[in-house]
Design a protein around this nucleic acid. Structure first.
Length: 933
DNA sequence: GACATCACG
DNA sequence: GACGTACGTGATGTCC
């Protein structure tokens, strides 16, 4: 029986996407037990549908109903405005496979399910609502999306299913300050950060409503913009007219979407028990199918409690790791067999063997591949005749190897195929090796980064450690092939038979680890962290490292000489003062001189029984005696010379003339990067003499170094996470945050602030980030402990939210064994349950980790987005120093680079996290790093 | 290879 | 009540 849609009919339109995202975010990432398919969103979606149909809608009960979905990402709005919805985060990987299942679910409930390629659900909803209204029927749109509010009125209402609240014309007026017919005008002015609709800068909903109410509608307002009294508003409207008109076209819903169905197709139908229950069984939703069976008065299906399907994914069925079973690939036909296996499977574990850990100088020696546990091979390419009696070494290639270029040509389609996942352990290394050979390897997965996302703070993430821990297998140590110390050889000298076992084993282990880690990412809810903060950073870091930074050897060399001369003078002076000669660089000898021979006060022995002679100790002694003061000077120079001016020269690459650091993505438990070989994250800056070392870091001819750094990012994050209104407001107002803290704490007005009071407040602000203690603050400020404790007490009194945040964070760590950043990164705190002094360490680390980690996440997001943002500019990103990014840019592009990079950095938290405080970035440029910073 | 020291955020 | 203590890193030199 069909009823013609008309008066007396009531159409319900459900915004399907809203249901899905609500379900996805409300539920933990459930997986189907039998095969691990993610189904959390489907489960939530079905529960919401079930609740919807079982609800007694009373007089609002529908005669017609449909669930409307989005289909495709490109719509007419993208043609109007390329940046429309451009700030959307990519769909989480575990949600994507659930999208078709939500359509299936809708059909299983026997509810009409509609989507049209190239049209947003909102336009389909608008079209149907208009049709139904024009035929005299009623419409309820089940959604709380404000973009749909323009449709309300004339029999159309909205229903916020979560709050069970109906939204009528008054509701819309409450929200927008205007009636539904003027909602688009307000939206056009106010813009929308969620959909990236620009609007008029500086005008929000309140102001927009005010203007529209005054002038009647948007067109009149724009035509009469000259009459507006407020100069800034007037100018904005006149200047951005085109942008405002574009915004209106973006927010205006289209009531004329071409539909291939009619309202009559949407009539409410009872679900067919068999169809619905068989779908729910397939999904293995036990509770829900029992509930629905009861409601439908039929017998609930029995869903067998199957064990996870036996497959190669199940570690129990894997063959033991057996290096002698791996294949050596010696002819192109055999290689082709492996390539075919990889293409058929869609993924491969891969590892490269080279002559050096330094990727810039490494030569490719061989490649290993694994496609399933136990099935791995090694392709030797660059092994040399290992004539150990040949004093000069032999350059001849060993027999039985394929030509390197032929192998790379054959592998290129695999390495660059978007449909083949390349799995590696520390893929940045392999990606850099391949990049040196003109190959771009993508897409990738990295077991080291998976381990880091899963278990940061619990253990390290090197392959040997992971293999031992998760596979109970100790891989062949590289030492057994290369030897150690002076007699160590490079991998090209390793006999091929030995290399096959070692190299293929690495690929095999990597593949096994991948099979274990992949499902764990979902289970531990760190898939997004891995996919948005870890994996996409790999190619970014690889490019930065390969590019390197230009360092002027002559500048360093001159400084080294000057330091050596000064040190010689100081050393003579020190020996004179000591009355005898000794090794100034030996803390042990210095301690004996100071505290035994000279019998100075304050000698304290540490754990090992040696006197402490750190800078703080020497500084105290320096007020009394000359010797410790001279030693401090000597030490500063010694540090600068050995660690910087000497060592950096050895790191200049002979081929590029540049210094290529290596970032360790898994180096710091908090999410920060570490920089090694050389460490370019601790180049001196605090002392005047040290800072001059930065003059050796220079821009190439015609270029400039450009530095951008976040201002007070950790304090801003603290203000946000702890919810400290006074701090948040101070940041919004652009105040001097330390002076403001001092003013709040000590009651000193800002204009009477002394530098000493400010200095104390600054120390407290930093102390808070580190998990403050009276002892620590006292030592830092060199004041009595009781006084320091008094400061802290006053601070907590004034900002009680900080104390609450600290307590909550420690409690969270105790309850879960980890803390997390605003972006979901987990940092484990296994020591939190410890007793004694270790508990103090763990507490402070737990308090600091979410703050430091969130800052680290933010700059990572900026770095990941940076290549696209600067793609059209003549510049390269070179270095990251925790809150600073350093670029090298063509001289005339400096301003454009600063503008583009600043925008990315300041907006890096969006849209995943909306901070209550603005992020601000300071910028500078110059011929060298000292000038730019 | 452990330890002390000191460079950075 | 005593314990010990600011958070996160890497490189260098001494000494065993």
């Amino acid at each position: 029986m069909t009823t013609q849609f008309g008066k007396g009919c009531h159409l319900h339109l459900i915004d399907g996407s809203a249901f899905i995202f609500r379900a996805y975010h409300a539920l933990p990432p459930l997986t189907r037990k039998s095969d691990g398919l993610p189904i959390g969103a489907v489960s939530g979606f079905c529960n919401m549908l079930q609740r919807y149909i079982s609800d007694d809608h009373g007089p609002d009960a529908p005669t017609h109903v449909a669930v409307i979905f989005d289909k495709g990402s490109h719509t007419f709005r993208n043609d109007l405005y390329g940046l429309y919805k451009a700030n959307r985060e990519a769909m989480p990987e575990d949600l994507r496979p659930q999208m078709p299942l939500t359509r299936e679910a809708t059909r299983a409930f026997n509810i009409a399910c509609q989507e049209i390629e190239g049209f947003e659900a909102d336009d389909i909803i608008a079209t149907l609502a208009c049709q139904a209204r024009d035929l005299g029927g009623r419409v309820t749109i089940i959604s709380s999306d404000k973009d749909l509010m323009q449709l309300v009125g004339g029999g159309v209402e909205m229903l916020d299913a979560m709050k069970n609240r109906r939204i009528d014309v008054e509701g819309v007026e409450e929200k927008f300050g205007v009636g539904p017919d003027r909602v688009v005008d307000v939206q056009a002015l106010a813009g929308d950060s969620v959909d990236n609709v620009p609007g008029a800068p500086g005008i929000g909903i309140k102001t927009a409503a005010l203007l529209i109410n005054e002038y009647g509608d948007l067109e009149t307002l724009l035509d009469r913009a000259e009459e507006i009294k407020q100069p800034k508003r007037r100018q904005t409207l006149i200047e951005h007219r085109a942008q405002i008109e574009l915004s209106k076209r973006l927010v205006q819903l289209d009531c004329n979407t071409p539909l291939d169905f009619g309202l009559d197709d949407l009539e409410v139908r009872d679900p067919d028990p068999e169809t619905l229950l068989s779908f729910l069984s397939e999904m293995e939703f036990r509770t829900l199918s029992t509930r629905i069976a009861k409601a439908l008065a039929v017998e609930a299906p029995v869903i067998p409690d199957v064990a996870p399907a036996a497959s190669e994914d199940s570690a129990a069925d894997w063959p033991a790791i057996a290096p002698e079973a791996y294949e050596r690939v010696s002819d192109m036909a055999a290689l082709q067999v492996w390539i075919d296996r990889i293409l058929a499977r869609g993924y491969v574990a891969i590892d490269t063997e080279t002559t050096s850990l330094n990727e810039m100088q490494a030569e490719l020696v061989g490649i290993s591949l694994a496609v399933e546990p136990g099935q791995a091979c090694y392709i030797p390419l660059g092994h040399r005749e290992g004539a150990s009696d040949d004093l000069f070494g032999s350059d001849a290639l060993a027999e039985g190897q394929l030509p390197r270029d032929a192998v790379l040509s054959a592998l290129r389609p695999v390495l660059e195929d978007a449909a083949v996942l390349k799995i590696g352990q520390n893929m940045k290394y392999d990606a850099k090796i391949f990049a040196g050979l003109g190959l771009t390897i993508a897409p990738i997965d990295d077991t080291m980064l998976m381990s880091y996302a899963l278990n940061s703070g619990i253990h390290n993430h090197g392959m040997d450690a992971l293999s031992e821990r998760y596979l109970a297998h100790n891989p062949i140590p590289i030492k057994t092939l290369l030897g150690t110390g002076k007699s160590a050889v490079t991998f090209d000298k390793v006999p091929i038979d030995e290399a096959v076992k070692y190299a293929a084993e690495d690929a095999d282990i990597t593949l096994r680890l991948w099979h274990m880690f992949k499902p764990q990412l979902h289970q531990k809810q760190v898939t997004t962290v891995y996919e948005t903060l870890e994996r996409p950073l790999v190619p970014v870091l690889a490019r930065m490292e390969r590019h390197g930074i230009l360092v002027d050897r002559d500048v360093l060399s001159r400084m080294s000489n000057a330091f050596a001369q000064k040190m010689g003078g100081l050393e003579a002076e020190i020996h004179e003062l000591a009355g005898r000669s000794f090794n100034v660089g030996s803390p042990k000898q210095l301690g004996e001189i100071l505290f035994d021979e000279m019998a100075l006060e304050g000698g304290k022995k540490g754990k090992t029984g040696a006197y402490a002679t750190g800078a703080d100790v020497l500084e105290d002694l320096a007020t009394e005696h000359e010797l410790p003061a001279r030693v401090l000077d000597w030490r500063q120079l010694s540090k600068l010379k050995s660690t910087y001016t000497d060592a950096l020269q050895d790191h200049i690459d002979p081929n590029t003339g540049r210094v290529h650091t290596s970032y360790v993505q898994t180096g710091a438990s908090t999410g920060r990067l570490a920089s090694t070989d050389p460490n370019l994250q601790n180049i001196p800056v605090r002392s005047e003499e040290g800072r001059r070392i930065r003059e050796a870091f220079v821009a190439d001819a015609g270029k400039r170094l450009v530095s951008l750094d976040y201002s007070q990012i950790e304090l801003r994050i603290l203000a946000h996470v702890a919810g400290i209104d006074a701090l948040k407001q101070a940041f919004r107002d652009g105040l001097d945050i330390h002076a403001m803290t001092a003013s709040e704490m000590f009651g000193v007005p800002l204009d009477e602030m002394t530098s000493d009071v400010r200095r104390r407040a600054k120390a407290i602000n930093f102390g808070v980030i580190y998990g403050i203690s009276g002892f620590g603050l006292a030592r830092n400020l060199r004041i009595p402990r009781a006084e320091a404790q008094g400061f802290i007490d006053r601070y907590f009194e004034r900002f009680p939210g900080i104390r609450a945040y600290m307590d909550e964070t420690v409690e969270f760590a105790k309850a879960h064994g980890y803390v997390q950043t605003l972006f979901g990164r987990r940092i484990h705190t296994p020591e939190i349950a410890a007793k004694g002094p270790r508990a103090g360490f763990a507490k402070r680390a737990a308090i600091n980790a979410p703050i430091q980690g969130t800052a680290a996440d933010i700059i990572r997001r900026a770095m990941i987005r940076m290549p696209e943002a600067i793609a059209d500019l003549p510049c390269k990103m070179l270095l990251q120093v925790h809150d600073e990014l350093l670029f090298e840019a063509e001289e005339d592009a400096v301003d454009a680079v600063i503008t583009a990079a600043r925008e990315v950095m300041e907006g890096a938290a969006d849209p995943a996290v909306h901070l209550d405080v603005p992020l601000t970035v300071d910028a500078g440029s110059g011929m060298n790093w000292a000038e730019a910073h």
